[in-house]
């Protein structure tokens, strides 16, 4: 699975980061990316409104302990590829950024879109920040989805380090941190 683009969208729907990793991919203007970010923000909300009644009804009849709502995303070490771990993980010690399966904060909002040519994965954090990865492989395979979620959570860890801890970065403003760029490129290169 090759990642074509990574986007970071802040909690108000504004695009704060956009980076293409494959040069021959589609070229959108920066304006079009801004519109894309705003649209995704809206669709995340709409997707949760369109949840089928069958699921809404079973959720209400006290099946809070049912398997579906509390599913964990399995940990995929090295993102499934045989490459080595990152050389420098910032403030995260140990083999990898994290090494356990983790719950998703985004239960009923949009997570994943596939088209003829691509897949788009969306990871939303508790603070409303959204990480989007567009890959060149159109797949709904559960393993691929787990790999993408792991990748986006690692991108979140990089964000927490190189963007949040940069005192000259304005929150909610576009990200202009070289260290974040470099480390993200390294992370994506692992795949």
């Amino acid at each position: 699975m090759a990642i074509q683009t990574i986007l970071v969208i802040n909690k108000s729907g504004g695009l704060v980061y956009q980076r293409d990793f494959i040069k021959t991919g589609a070229k959108l203007s920066s304006n079009e990316y801004l519109i894309l970010a705003g649209t995704l923000q809206g669709v995340v909300a709409i997707a949760s409104q369109v949840t089928p009644k069958a699921l809404q009804i079973s959720a209400k009849t006290g099946s809070k302990t049912a398997n579906e709502p509390s599913q964990l995303i399995p940990y995929v070490g090295s993102l499934g590829a045989p490459a080595q771990n990152l050389s420098d993980m910032g403030s995260f010690m140990g083999q990898d950024f994290f090494n356990e399966s983790f719950p998703s904060w985004n239960q009923s909002g949009l997570k994943h879109v596939t088209t003829d040519q691509l897949s788009m994965f969306l990871y939303q954090t508790l603070t409303g920040l959204k990480f989007v990865a567009i890959s060149t492989q159109s797949t709904t395979n559960a393993m691929a989805v787990s790999i993408a979620e792991n990748l986006l959570r690692k991108a979140y860890c990089l964000y927490a380090d190189y963007v949040m801890k940069n005192p000259f970065h304005d929150p909610e403003m576009p990200i202009k941190c070289e260290l974040f760029d470099t480390h993200l490129a390294e992370l994506v290169g692992q795949l």
């Binding site: 995260f92 950024f97 994290f98 954090t125 959570r153 979140y156 860890c157 964000y159 927490a160 949040m164």
Partner: peptide
């Protein structure tokens, strides 16, 4: 605090 929360959430992935 507004920055540290992202580090905390990225590190722990604790649910709400």
């Amino acid at each position: 605090g507004v920055r540290l929360i992202e580090d905390f959430l990225a590190r722990t992935a604790l649910p709400r």
